[in-house]
């Protein structure tokens, strides 16, 4: 049995929320710099250089890259041999988000009621927290600050088995073609295939945590990722939708067994500011 103090969870989550908003993950950072060097179209290269200049300013000022500091989503792997002292895990995470956004001068972007929209929660809570119980003494919290310009362009569709891989490609490419110009391209895409309605969406979100240089273990899904990346970057949408080669930095597929009658597919689109990080206790 391993003991973790609730206040340590709060402190680490708060630290992570500020850090991911201020500094791009290394894999995204290096990919953006590489794309600036490789982009052939002058206007697109210019936009990528502005993006990289803003990245430097944000790091130096220790301030958020983007004013949309997101809604926080957390995926928790909660080991059965973990005991949390002096508080509950959910409250500890929410308190970490509250402290980060209030003390870190970040934008509070959460309204209490999705239809009335007349009251901001004032501290960017609640975060959306997903738990997975796992064996052992591990406690891992992955945090994403998800911007909604890109979230709004995401989509889910219940395909038929007969639609097959071609149906999946068509839906993914169509969603990205429509969404990328409004989603602050160059985008990153998470694709969930299989499971059921909500499982596909969860997989798509989880896929946005995968480092850009990592690819699916299954050869046919690795090939699918590669083909989708190539096809999106052949669309010519470019950074901010103004034309160019650099439309998508990476795409990851996560899959799950599904029902004989179904083929759920979810496409979660993220802007290039894919704010993600993980803390392990």
């Amino acid at each position: 049995m391993k003991i973790v103090q609730a206040k340590d969870i709060t402190q680490k989550v708060a630290q992570l929320c500020v850090e991911i908003n201020t500094k791009l993950a290394d894999d995204i950072d290096s990919t953006l710099k590489k794309e600036e060097r490789q982009e052939p179209y002058p206007l697109a290269r210019n936009i990528l250089s502005v993006i990289n200049e803003n990245r430097n300013l944000a790091i130096n000022a220790r301030r958020p890259i983007c004013q949309d500091t997101g809604m926080v989503v957390a995926f928790v792997k909660y080991g059965q041999e973990i005991m949390i002292k002096d508080g509950g895990i959910e409250q500890a995470i929410q308190e970490g988000v509250r402290q980060a956004y209030c003390q870190g001068y970040m934008r509070k972007s959460v309204v209490k009621d999705p239809l009335l929209r007349n009251e901001n929660t004032q501290d960017n809570t609640p975060a959306i927290v997903h738990y997975q119980i796992v064996p052992g003494e591990v406690l891992q919290i992955s945090v994403m600050a998800k911007g909604f310009g890109s979230e709004n362009t995401s989509a889910l569709k219940m395909l038929k088995p007969a639609d097959g891989v071609e149906g999946v490609k068509h839906f993914v490419l169509d969603t990205i073609r429509k969404g990328a110009p409004n989603a602050c391209a160059p985008i990153i895409a998470g694709i969930g295939i299989g499971g059921d309605f909500e499982k596909a969406a969860l997989l798509a979100k989880e896929a946005l945590f995968i480092p850009l240089d990592q690819h699916h273990k299954k050869p046919h899904l690795r090939a699918l990722e590669k083909e989708l990346l190539r096809k999106v970057n052949e669309m010519g949408i470019g950074p901010m939708g103004m034309g160019g080669q650099t439309t998508m930095l990476g795409i990851h597929v996560l899959d799950y067994p599904t029902h004989i009658a179904g083929l759920p597919v979810a496409v979660n689109i993220c802007c290039y500011v894919d704010r993600r990080g993980t803390v392990v206790f």
Binding site: I47, I51, A61
Partner: peptide, 13 residues
């Protein structure tokens, strides 16, 4: 006009 999305710190300058 369009401004480069995601460049909040630069815009604020």
């Amino acid at each position: 006009f369009a401004c480069v999305g995601g460049t909040g710190t630069l815009c604020a300058k």
